[in-house]
């Protein structure tokens, strides 16, 4: 359905924006390494089923892309552009995010199996793993416009999944309460950022016409 496709595209676009930002500026300043490492964990734990179940070519290719690109970004940040990388401001206590997500996955899952627990863990972790990035943004005070576009596209992706879940509930009679709950939490975390982004975009491109 349309929401699902739009969500996936916006997810794809967010990563392309991120890669382009890093390659063009030859720097990773303003980007949280912690958030990027958490994304590697999110994608690897969620897409373990790549090895066991086949959904579609589209599905497999996207999963491989998300795993590969997240690992690539971490490699860029830690190896290639390491010299220019300042980590002193990227100090969000990540252990609470990982620990909290793990507890949530033990409390909420569809089956008590290794892969289902990891899958649930990845949903909760994804919902909160932008926090170090938002924290860094707040600490540095200013951000390159491109970094905010990245966060916007990333937030939009899960927000678009919400109408997709409604659609699936009515058309396929399927309800994935775990995805919906984690997705709502994720969108809530982004909502403050969305508001600021919306205000700035309106200010810069809408009302300030000469």
């Amino acid at each position: 359905n349309l929401f699902r496709i739009a969500g996936d595209i916006s997810h794809l676009v967010s990563i392309l924006i991120l890669l382009q930002t890093i390659e063009k500026g030859k720097t990773t300043s303003g980007i949280s390494l912690k958030t990027q490492i958490l994304y590697v964990v999110v994608f690897v734990t969620r897409y373990l089923d790549l090895l066991t179940t086949y959904v579609s070519l589209y599905n497999s290719l996207m999963k491989i892309f998300f795993i590969a690109s997240s690992v690539y970004v971490v490699w860029l940040m830690t190896s290639k552009y390491n010299k220019k990388f300042k980590e002193d401001q990227d100090v969000f206590p990540v252990k609470y995010l990982v620990g909290g997500s793990f507890v949530m996955s033990l409390l909420f899952h569809y089956k008590f199996t290794f892969s289902e627990i990891l899958w649930s863990f990845s949903l909760w972790l994804e919902a909160v793993c932008i926090l170090p990035q938002l924290f860094l943004l707040q600490k540095t005070g200013e951000a390159k416009a491109i970094t905010t576009h990245y966060i916007f596209a990333l937030g939009l992706y899960r927000a678009l999944y919400i109408p997709n879940w409604f659609y699936r509930y009515y058309s396929e009679n399927r309800l994935d309460l775990l995805s919906v709950s984690a997705g709502l939490l994720q969108t809530t975390i982004y909502s403050d950022f969305f508001y600021v982004y919306y205000q700035k975009v309106l200010k810069n491109w809408g009302f300030n016409l000469p």
Binding site: R4, D8, H11, D49, T53, V55, S56, N59, M62, K63, F66, Y110, E116, W119, Y161, N164, W165, R168, Y169, N173, R174, L175, D176, L177, L178, S179
Partner: peptide, 10 residues
């Protein structure tokens, strides 16, 4: 509705 994980999603 059938309560099950949407494993076909990303």
């Amino acid at each position: 509705a059938e309560a099950s994980p949407n494993h076909d999603e990303l």
